[in-house]
């Protein structure tokens, strides 16, 4: 049950966009139509679901204080936490590159729909944010960490598809000229954030 709880928390309560503003840049830039938003959203779920577990292993086997115990007693005091930022971003960019090559090789159809978004994702804050939150919250097993990653990914997907749908419709309404485009998108996102806050405190 704990896993479901973590997942739901990631989707609604601690939504990457509405609660932490992570991945806002691509969220604002790629949300003009639902189709592209859909592609980017799926790519984010995919990449989060892969990079967070990998970073989890890295964190617990290499970086954490005392994590290098498996190398022998001499390494028990080693604390490599200083390096975690550099390692995480290296893992993220390497994984994105790898995933891109694998998809291109095995599923050209998926590649043509996700392909253009994958390079964008290496610098999407929500991916590195996922890794850093995983480090901060100290999930006890790799499955919990994966469940958190998928939850956050789905939450991000939900947010970008919702805003894209709203932006498609808002073209027909009479927005004050200086607010058109970016301005109104910010304000709508803020209002959606307030709406999402009603999920706060829910436990399953």
């Amino acid at each position: 049950m704990d896993l479901v709880n973590i997942f739901i928390k990631g989707v609604f309560i601690e939504n990457m966009i509405f609660a932490y503003f992570l991945g806002m840049c691509s969220y604002l830039a790629v949300s003009k139509t639902v189709t592209t938003a859909n592609g980017l959203g799926l790519a984010v779920i995919f990449v989060l679901g892969i990079t967070v577990p990998v970073n989890y292993i890295l964190e617990n086997q290499v970086l954490k204080a005392g994590a290098l115990e498996w190398l022998g007693q001499n390494f028990i005091d080693v604390d490599l936490n200083v390096l975690s930022l550099i390692m995480f971003i290296a893992v993220v960019s390497a994984m994105v590159q790898l995933v891109e090559m694998i998809i291109e090789r095995f599923s050209p159809a998926l590649y043509s729909s996700l392909g253009i978004f994958l390079p964008l994702i290496a610098v999407n804050c929500s991916i590195l944010g996922g890794a850093l939150f995983m480090q901060e919250r100290q999930y006890s097993t790799i499955i919990e960490a994966t469940s958190f990653a998928l939850g956050s990914g789905v939450g991000w997907y939900l947010a970008i598809v919702a805003i894209a749908a709203i932006r498609e419709k808002i073209r027909y309404s009479n927005v004050p000229a200086p607010l058109r485009g970016l301005g109104i998108t910010y304000i709508i996102t803020g209002l959606m954030g307030i709406a999402f806050m009603c999920f706060m405190g829910i436990k399953i």
């Binding site: 200086p178 910010y186 209002l191």
Partner: peptide, 25 residues
């Protein structure tokens, strides 16, 4: 609360763009 940050930036954009019409999308 977090959402208000977005709304304030939205308002800053509004002020900025109404002062300089070339920026309007």
């Amino acid at each position: 609360l977090p959402p208000m940050a977005l709304i304030i930036v939205g308002l800053i954009i509004w002020i900025q763009r109404s002062r300089n019409n070339e920026l309007i999308e």
